[in-house]
């Protein structure tokens, strides 16, 4: 206890009042900091998403969110569709492996990027390395399978679970939205007419 405290500091009224004052001061201070940092934080989040989107769908000027957090359409500067980006989060070895996959208008993968993962360092974490990522480029969804599953992609050694999660996750994600990834073609809408 500080020796130099006055008697009223130890009283009951001040006990309540001091806590109230500290809380109000803290709240006011935090509100100001929040007001300054909030726009910056929001902008950071938007920038991070846009950067990742642009990385998987080259030549795109801006994106339009179709299904929140799952599907984006990309457009170039002249507002012409360049393709779409699908976000998937398949279960890896130690948690979801959040992955963005770009698909061009020809239905071929334009690139993938892993935005968040908790895999084992030195093993599953190697999924972010360029050689693994680059294998996806230029392939149709149906061909996205590991070599040991009858496909053509090399798995990361000693990290089959992670490799398979990313590969199958991207394939299934693209197949889920396949009808929306490609621009509507004339005649396509008629196919359901007879049923």
């Amino acid at each position: 206890m500080s020796a130099s405290q006055s008697a009223w500091v130890q009283g009951r009224v001040w006990m309540v009042l001091s806590l109230v004052i500290v809380c109000i001061a803290a709240a006011v201070g935090l509100a100001r900091v929040y007001g300054v940092t909030k726009p910056v934080i929001d902008q950071q989040k938007i920038d991070a998403v846009n950067q990742a989107l642009a990385a998987v769908l080259p030549g795109t000027d801006h994106f339009e969110e179709q299904v929140p957090g799952e599907l984006w359409y990309g457009f170039d500067a002249q507002d012409v569709r360049t393709g779409a980006v699908v976000r998937v989060a398949p279960r890896g070895y130690a948690g979801p492996v959040e992955t963005l996959a770009g698909v061009g208008l020809d239905g071929l993968v334009t690139g993938i990027v892993i935005t968040s993962l908790k895999e084992t360092p030195g093993l599953g974490l190697k999924a972010t390395q360029a050689w693994f990522r680059d294998q996806f480029r230029g392939k149709p969804a149906a061909e996205l399978k590991l070599d040991k599953d009858g496909g053509t992609l090399d798995a990361i050694s000693a990290a089959t679970i992670t490799s398979r999660a990313v590969t199958n996750g991207v394939r299934e994600g693209i197949e889920k939205y396949l009808d929306r990834l490609l621009p509507a073609q004339p005649g396509m809408s008629d196919t359901t007419g007879d049923e």
């Binding site: 206890m1 500080s2 130099s4 405290q5 006055s6 500091v9 130890q10 009283g11 001040w14 006990m15 001091s18 806590l19 500290v22 809380c23 803290a26 201070g29 935090l30």
Partner: peptide
């Protein structure tokens, strides 16, 4: 700074509010 105005009996909650701020 505030030590002279912090009652001994509730100093810990006050410290925690300051720290968490």
């Amino acid at each position: 700074l505030v030590r002279r105005f912090v009652p001994n009996s509730i100093r810990i909650p006050i410290f925690i509010i300051i720290i968490s701020t």
